[in-house]
């Protein structure tokens, strides 16, 4: 009983996705009458939905490449403005060291901008988050997400991306990772501050600097989610370019822009999984006590001191 019930549900969901993917096809003359009949039949069964798109499905959880492209654009522009304000703050500090800026105090408060002088740890944090946002959220996510999404279907004559659903997921993973990255600006120890390259062991050892505490964990989680988004997007672009070109649009006839998007996507698929595993290993090292990236000699030293503490302190500081 159970099995059949879930399979009914399943086919319902499949049907919905199928219909959404093919919605535009119906109005175009290229669909065969058979297909139209087929679709019309389903349409009849579920008469009540999908005729008028709701606000949510049209602008929020949209599967339309044009809307998703705009979502990427707006998110990336917001991120870029945040990162640019950061660069203004740290460049003010760099250009006039020791000078007091009311602006810095107003932006960062007394903890990070006491008397209007930027705290050295916060300087590094701002540079790090500036670099991270500009490289990943603006250049990688923003540019590729906006222009690949907008132009690939237009310039190769496809109706939409190969999978509108994955495309939607790609944007929302991007959004979630942006929110996590920005949230790390508001925690007590401050955001990640080891430079945007996050070299271990500086990033692997929470005691190495304040920015290697919770801020680094948030950075890594955000980046892992960002990479998922980027991979979903890139796979979609590649499949769309390879599979969904209109009649006569041979690979050799593709515009240079499409070639650029294709190569960008392939490079992304090749390099981001490596970054993903690195981020994951770091998360494991930091949060679950593995030792894959942490240099073993450092861990040994840490363990050694812990052992000493356990052996000699346990009776004196018992109970704590």
């Amino acid at each position: 009983m159970e099995g059949s019930k879930s399979s009914v549900q399943n086919s319902g969901i499949k049907l919905k996705i199928y219909k959404i993917l093919n919605r535009k096809q119906m109005s175009t003359p290229t669909t065969t009458t058979l297909e139209q009949e087929h679709l019309a039949h389903h349409e009849h069964v579920h008469d009540h939905d999908d005729h008028e798109e709701s606000f949510v499905s049209k602008y929020v959880f949209s599967m339309d490449h044009k809307v998703i492209s705009r979502q990427f654009l707006i998110t990336a522009v917001v991120m870029a403005v945040v990162a640019m304000v950061m660069s203004v703050i740290f460049r003010l500090q760099l250009a006039w060291p020791g000078e007091k800026f009311g602006f810095i105090n107003a932006m960062l408060g007394d903890k990070w901008g006491k008397d209007g002088i930027l705290d050295p740890n916060m300087y590094l944090a701002l540079v790090t988050i500036h670099g991270t946002i500009m490289v990943f959220f603006v250049l990688t996510g923003g540019l590729s997400g906006t222009f690949s999404n907008l132009l690939i279907p237009y310039q190769i004559g496809a109706r939409d991306m190969a999978s509108g659903f994955l495309n939607m997921l790609s944007y929302w993973f991007f959004f979630v990772s942006s929110v996590i990255m920005l949230s790390s600006l508001f925690i007590e120890d401050g955001p990640a501050s080891g430079g945007w390259t996050i070299y271990p062991p500086l990033s692997a050892l929470p005691e190495a600097m304040p920015g290697s505490k919770l801020g680094m964990t948030l950075w890594l989680v955000s980046m892992a989610i960002f990479i998922i988004s980027s991979l979903l997007g890139s796979l979609n672009y590649i499949i769309t370019v390879i599979n969904m070109r209109t009649k006569g649009m041979k690979m050799t006839r593709m515009p240079l822009t499409i070639w650029a998007f294709l190569i960008t996507a392939i490079l992304g698929v090749l390099s981001f999984p490596v970054l993903f595993s690195a981020a994951l290993l770091l998360i494991f090292d930091r949060s679950f006590n593995t030792s894959s990236i942490c240099l073993t000699f450092i861990l040994e030293a840490v363990r050694l001191t812990m052992w000493v503490e356990v052996l000699f302190c346990s009776n004196t500081c018992s109970g704590s």
Partner: peptide, 9 residues
């Protein structure tokens, strides 16, 4: 020339 903590500068 590699960020190494608060007093790196």
């Amino acid at each position: 020339n590699k960020i190494c903590g608060a007093s790196h500068y």
